[in-house]
Design a protein around this nucleic acid. Structure first.
Length: 578
RNA sequence: GGGCGUGUAGCAUAGCCUGGAUAAUGCACCGGCCUCCUAAGCCGGGGACCGCGGGUUCGAAUCCUGCCGCGCCCGCCA
């Protein structure tokens, strides 16, 4: 609907000059109407009452009269209590809809040609993925799809934790099990248990602890047998991650993995570069950089530690190395990090350091995309029935099982194969939609009943709207060709409402891309689904009258296409039957 | 102590960046609607001192400011 703003602003420019308001930028006073009964656009004139020494209502009335001829055939213009209201004509809506008929992305323009790296998911080797990884993975994946749809070249990066001191104990644990004849795959079949066992042995056995420490040194100095063991750990973990990613239907593959180990060789380089810039300072034996105005508890400047007192590197160093790699090797312009809100300050400090040291400059942007927590029923931490962390794999399988039960309940004759596919689409879609539908910075309570209830603002509701549309198109005996319609009459109120929600889709995608906020798309798709549901009740599609049928079929095709397109941007399937 | 985030009907949220008219949506609640393209739906209804107080403005959920509740962060973990 933003396309309506241009002609309105243009027409308004002349009118404002007539009124003696030459210096007012027309676009600055044109806004979307907040209430449907006020039309599509509202322009308030109260602020000019003082300058013009006239009551707002009178000004608005005059403007409406003068603006109306400019917008002939485009919009109706009226005025009320100091506002000028502009309402698109069916003719204008129709011409816009005709464009959408043949537009493969329904008005979404691929007009942002940036090179973007999106860093998301980031699980740890030798640890099972748990609910804590859900949001980064789901939100990050949706952002990748959205940014790609906007034309950007997007590079996915899965910054897995595959390096550092824990690997000493993990490798030693693996050694021990192997020498007692246990197959590594079997030893690590329960990743969480494997990690906990290693941890327990590390904490309880002094001899083991010493071996683990020695092993870390071997790893970092490139000892071959150690690296082989390390490789085993990585491989087994990776296949577990991939299993989750496939189930979750996210785009991440093994090709997207860029673990911490990959940046290891750049760490001395980071130190050197900062040193050359004269930014490194010695502090209590460590080498640090002071990126800005951050203070510690005592009110002293807070440094970012680049090299620890013991000579080791810190995660800040690794993050800076990452930036070097992304900017110089990958030539990235925009750096996006989908990482929990608790790391906000850390990333701000890293970004500030990167700018200060010239690793990035005015051509680059950095965005930390924080998100809230997934909470349990009581509002506390989400726990499994046994009280531990919820494994992501278990959670996803439960979603699918629950969806399966509902599908079977409703559709007893369904084939096993279709049941499997459908419950996967619905179960995973429900989890993803409930994660994406509200502002990501907020915590949300994980609630099976709500997300799978199939009522209200849920994934299944949107999928159902799509399935009903598909059903209509299937039942169309004439199987109209895809385009050919040159105008829409939009005679029924429900058709008009549907048309408006259709036309608002592209701007919701732009908003989502701009704010890195997928929920903007969720909200618009839900409004579209509601408008479609009303249309579905009030406007039978497969009727005898050719004109009516063709027009309504075209509306269905566009609405269904948008649902498919939009759900895809969220990483959610759009089944044709439910 | 400092910083950041958050607070909107019984519950869950949108709107806040970019100030407009009667605060939107879902759940729950009340009343209607299946000889008709999937009722996982639709139509109608009740329910809100937008955390509290000041300020700016013709106009504040939205901007500024001071409180209050909750959460997170504040150097050798990631």
């Amino acid at each position: 609907m933003r396309e309506l703003f241009d002609p309105v602003a243009k027409g308004l420019a002349g009118v404002l000059i007539d009124l003696g308001l030459d210096d007012v930028e027309p676009k600055s006073i044109v806004g979307g109407a907040t209430d449907r009964s006020h039309g599509d656009i509202a322009i308030p004139f109260h602020k000019f009452a003082g300058v013009l020494r006239r009551p707002p209502a009178e000004i608005a009335e005059e403007v409406a009269g003068k603006l109306s001829p400019y917008l002939d055939k485009i919009a109706y213009v009226s005025s009320k209590s100091g506002f000028v209201n502009v309402t698109a004509t069916p003719k204008w809506l129709s011409s816009r809809l005709v464009e959408f008929c043949d537009h493969p992305s329904f008005g979404v323009k691929a007009d942002s040609l940036r090179k973007v790296v999106v860093d998301y998911s980031s699980p740890n080797i030798a640890k099972e993925m748990h609910v804590g990884h859900l949001r980064s993975t789901v939100i990050g994946d949706s952002l990748v799809r959205i940014l790609e749809a906007k034309g950007n070249k997007v590079i996915r990066e899965n910054h897995i934790g595959d390096w550092g001191t824990p690997f000493g104990m993990l490798i030693e644990r693996l050694e021990d099990l192997d020498s007692s004849g246990i197959d590594p795959d079997e030893a690590m079949s329960d990743l969480g248990q494997f990690y906990r066992d290693a941890r327990a042995q590390f904490d309880g056995d002094e001899n083991f602890r010493a071996r683990a420490r020695a092993r870390v040194v071997s790893l970092q100095t490139g000892d071959e047998p150690t690296l082989r063991r390390w490789g085993q750990l990585v491989d087994i973990s990776m296949s577990h991650f991939q299993e989750v990613y496939v189930l979750l239907n996210v785009l991440l593959t093994e090709d997207d993995v860029m673990g911490e180990s990959k940046y290891d060789h750049l760490l001395p380089d980071v130190v050197e570069r900062l040193q050359k810039k004269g930014l490194l300072e010695s502090n209590d034996g460590a080498s640090v950089i002071y990126p800005g105005d951050w203070l510690n508890r005592d009110g002293d400047p807070l440094p970012l530690i680049i090299k620890k007192r013991d000579g080791g590197y810190n995660y800040a160093t690794s993050d800076l190395a990452c930036i070097i790699d992304r900017v110089e090797r990958l030539q990235a312009e925009d750096l996006v990090y989908v990482v929990g809100a608790e790391q906000k300050q850390h990333f701000e400090m890293v970004f500030a350091s990167a700018r200060k040291s010239g690793l990035i400059d005015s051509r680059h942007t950095t965005s930390h995309v924080p998100f809230g927590l997934v909470l349990g029923p009581g509002g506390g931490k989400l726990k499994s029935r046994s009280g531990g962390v919820v494994k992501l794999l278990d959670l996803l399988n439960e979603a699918i099982d629950r969806a399966s039960a509902s599908v079977k309940d409703r559709n007893p004759d369904i084939t096993q194969e279709e049941l499997g596919r459908l419950s996967r689409s619905i179960g995973i879609g429900a989890v993803k939609y409930s994660d994406l539908k509200s502002d990501r910075t907020k915590d949300y309570v994980f609630d099976w009943e709500k997300m799978l209830s199939f009522e209200g603002e849920t994934g299944p509701y949107l999928q159902y709207a799509h399935a009903r549309i598909s059903s209509i198109l299937r039942n169309d005996k004439f199987q109209q060709s895809k385009s050919g319609l040159t105008s829409f009459s939009l005679a029924h109120e429900s058709e008009m409402r549907l048309a408006r929600e259709i036309l608002k889709y592209p701007e919701s995608v732009d908003q989502a891309a701009e704010d890195l906020a997928p929920h903007r798309i969720c909200k618009q798709l839900h409004r579209l689904s509601q408008a479609f549901a009303a249309f579905y009740e009030n406007c039978p599609v497969l009727v005898e009258d050719d004109n009516t049928r063709n027009e309504r079929l075209a509306l269905c095709r566009i609405a269904g296409g948008i649902l498919n397109h939009g759900l895809n941007l969220l990483g959610i399937d759009a089944p044709d039957r439910m």
